[in-house]
Design a protein around this nucleic acid. Structure first.
Lengths: 228, 228
DNA sequence: GCTGCTTTGTGAACGTGTGCACTAGTGCCT
DNA sequence: AGGCACTAGTGCACACGTTCACAAAGCAGC
């Protein structure tokens, strides 16, 4: 018989929130909560209750009117939708500050993303061990990706090396990339890239701070275009 | 005379892209490029040219038709709008893996966000020096915030300690928070919070990987709600 | 069983963001 | 001086996301 067809496409905004619901539900489950209403879930997630219901409705009708959602069941459904029914090993490129922190950050493995390997181009760094993972040379990337069946790569190199890192990841067979370098990566259309730029986040906060402080306080000294 | 009024509110989506333009423009400026078209800027930023023009138009009419934008001038205007005409010292709470990496990540200081201090609640970590910054005890937070005029705090603690860290930051006088802990922080309305959750990013990638792999391949074994 | 309370699921209105396509300046070349 | 090529700025239509408000559905108590 036909397995459930890949359901209606889920809006990006919803996909981005599902992990949050999942975390809250898991926590609640651990605390012995069996059932939860959209309102409570919304409160814990810092969002609107209607949004929670709409988001969850994209997965199917897994709630019970008058009661709420069964925590364990909902956890299962979200995990399934997100593809978290099995682990996704990741490989980290770049064993600098950030790469080391990521490798050492237990949160990845715990949440289903074990670090299959960490590589660097710098021979000096190869061989050192970070929180149980030995740094290998970047030339071993294809082998790691193949043998460990890695489909997600993390770029944690300096900006200048990021594109090369991405190219190598793609060549090695990775199909998704999480990019921490402050550059726009050029990759084949089929590759999914997400970018996390810490400085950008701070700059957005700066904008709000500046705005709060009263906007453009001093137009004084504004250089004009050095026209001709 | 009246300084320029705080101009029309800039859409969030635009604010989030301005730092990207800024980085590209700065790079181009360093490479000796004087003038740049919206098309070229769009290409380098991986976005649509019309979007670039619309985004920049929120700052004012700083381009020249038929020519493009003067790089240096545009850099200045974006910096001003984002409040980057002066540095914003930040204080990091949590000297674990991530906190250490952030403190050691030169990119912050370079881009106008020098690390004014890093604190931890663990006496054992206090006193050690990370990339030039000495770890201090969290009780010194108010003093650091006051003397260094810090308005941005970074939460880099484990999930369990994050709310306490946020509370302390707010009490110390910080008005913006960048949160790396996987929890929804409760803070007064006036406080601006941005969240970066590495695991969420991976889960979003996982969703796409799973979808690529053919969606719900096995409805087999799906547990049903353990009703009564 | 019926009534009333609760909570989901969703249609519809609204708001925000995106991208096209056109207008209006600007510089350059003849 | 006039025309051409180019590119910023923007009105408009569309797509996407959010929120409200209500009907449908289930449970509990009588």
């Amino acid at each position: 018989m036909a397995p459930e067809r890949t359901r209606r496409r889920i809006p990006d905004a919803t996909v981005a929130r599902l992990p949050v619901y999942l975390r809250i539900l898991t926590e609640q489950g651990d605390e012995g909560v069996d059932s939860i209403s959209s309102e409570r879930l919304a409160e814990l997630g810092g969002v609107n209750a209607a949004k929670v219901r709409k988001d969850l409705s994209y997965l199917g009708s897994y709630g019970t009117r008058g009661v709420g959602y069964e925590v364990a069941y909902l956890v299962y459904q979200i995990r399934r939708e997100l593809g978290l029914t099995h682990d996704w090993p990741v490989v980290i490129v770049g064993a600098g500050n950030l790469g080391q922190a990521l490798a050492g950050y237990g949160g990845f493995g715990e949440r289903g993303f074990p670090v299959a390997g960490i590589v660097d181009i710098d021979e000096a760094k190869v061989g050192s061990v970070l929180s149980g993972v030995r740094v290998r040379h970047i030339d071993e990337l294809p082998q790691i990706v193949q043998t460990k069946r890695v489909s997600i790569g993390v770029v944690a190199t300096p900006a200048g090396a990021a594109q090369d890192a991405a190219d190598r990841l793609v060549r090695a067979g990775v199909t998704s990339i999480l990019n921490f370098a402050p550059v726009v990566l050029a990759v084949p259309r089929a590759i999914e890239v997400r970018k996390v730029d810490l400085a950008v986040e701070l700059q957005i906060l700066s904008y709000h701070e500046q705005r709060r402080a009263g906007g453009a306080i001093h137009a004084v000294g504004t250089p004009r275009p050095a026209s001709a």
